[in-house]
Simulated assay, not measured.
Amino acid sequence: MAQPKPNTRIRLEIVHEDASIVVVNKSPGVVTEPGKSHRDDSLLNALIARFGGKMLQMGERRDYGLLHRLDRQTSGCVASALNHDAYDAVRAQFEARTVDKRYLAIVRGRMHTGTQSVELNLEEQRVATSEGTRLISVVARAGKPARTDINVLATSTTHTIIECTPHSGRLHQIRVHLAHLGFPLEGDPIYTVGARVLPATKAKERTLALHAWKLSFDHPAGGRVDATAPISRKFHEALRSAAIAWTP
């Protein structure tokens, strides 16, 4: 990744900030880091505009402080480090799968109340689209282990809002697991019932009803970082469209 340029035009909503760590609430539709089609309008460009040299001095090897990523159409908590030591300490927690991540998801269909765990191996595959190729995940016996815990929060006659806790960080893990159960994410243009893959282009993607709600991990200086990202206007609209009476 080339050194990101600062961009003050990207909205930045900070939900936690201290001398070492910042957690922001990423808006749906914003990419996490610069890429081929988004060279200077990513969340990282906005972070560089706000924190400048603190993040740039970590360089490409430490992703300029960025600790993890969300899909473009997913909103919610994204954490970054503001110095080398903080990056190394927190990144180790992400790699060890000890970071507590809680997502809100609106799915099509009415799920039974209660909790359940989905454990299905996932394998990445590259498929052709009208815009080139893209990576997807498929359920495969030879894939990597993946577990997602599900807690039903509320239902309507046609939809359900759930809290999802992924215990592994596979590509599109929550989306594939839910679709495999027969409850695809509202707004998902790729995975449908049974985790079948639909032909789609990135340009046609809508906002996913998926929100990285809570993020918790050990702070390098001691104690815990417990960040919560308020749901977006589009997520509120999805709740209303699904006729689900629920508030965080």
Rank of each mutant, 00 (worst) to 15 (best):
V107W: 08
P145I: 02
S241P: 01
V15L: 12
I21E: 15
G29R: 03
E33A: 13
L185M: 04
L67T: 00
V90R: 04
I231H: 14
R61Y: 06
L12H: 06
H236D: 10
L47D: 06
A86N: 03
V197L: 15
Q93T: 00
R97L: 12
V23L: 11
P28V: 03
T115Q: 10
A49S: 05
N151W: 05
R110W: 04
T160V: 11
L198V: 10
K101M: 11
I48P: 14
E33L: 06
A245N: 09
K36T: 13
H159R: 04
G29F: 11
R141Q: 08
H84C: 06
E205F: 14
V225C: 12
R102D: 12
R224Y: 06
D226I: 05
V118M: 13
L43Y: 00
E17F: 05
P230G: 04
R141F: 11
A86W: 04
R224S: 06
V22C: 01
Q173V: 00
L67V: 00
N121P: 12
G223H: 09
Q73P: 00
T113L: 11
P166R: 08
P189M: 11
G143C: 08
R50K: 08
A46T: 00
S130G: 02
G65I: 01
H167Q: 11
T160R: 07
E124L: 07
P4M: 07
A242F: 11
A86C: 03
N25L: 01
A146H: 04
N45K: 02
R206H: 03
I174C: 08
P4Y: 06
Q73N: 01
Y103Q: 03
H219I: 03
E205R: 01
R62L: 14
M58Q: 11
D149M: 05
A89K: 06
T32H: 04
T192Y: 14
Y103N: 04
A212L: 14
V107F: 12
Q3Y: 07
W213Y: 07
I244A: 10
A200W: 14
S137N: 04
T201I: 13
E124K: 11
K54N: 07
L44W: 02
A96Q: 13
L208F: 04
V193H: 15
E205D: 15
F183H: 10
E95G: 07
L47W: 02
G223R: 06
R69G: 02
E131I: 01
V176I: 03
G143T: 10
G187F: 15
T115G: 01
R196S: 14
T192F: 13
V139H: 03
V127T: 03
T160Y: 12
A146Q: 02
H68F: 03
A203Q: 11
R50E: 10
F217E: 09
E33W: 11
M55W: 14
S137M: 06
E13H: 10
G52M: 08
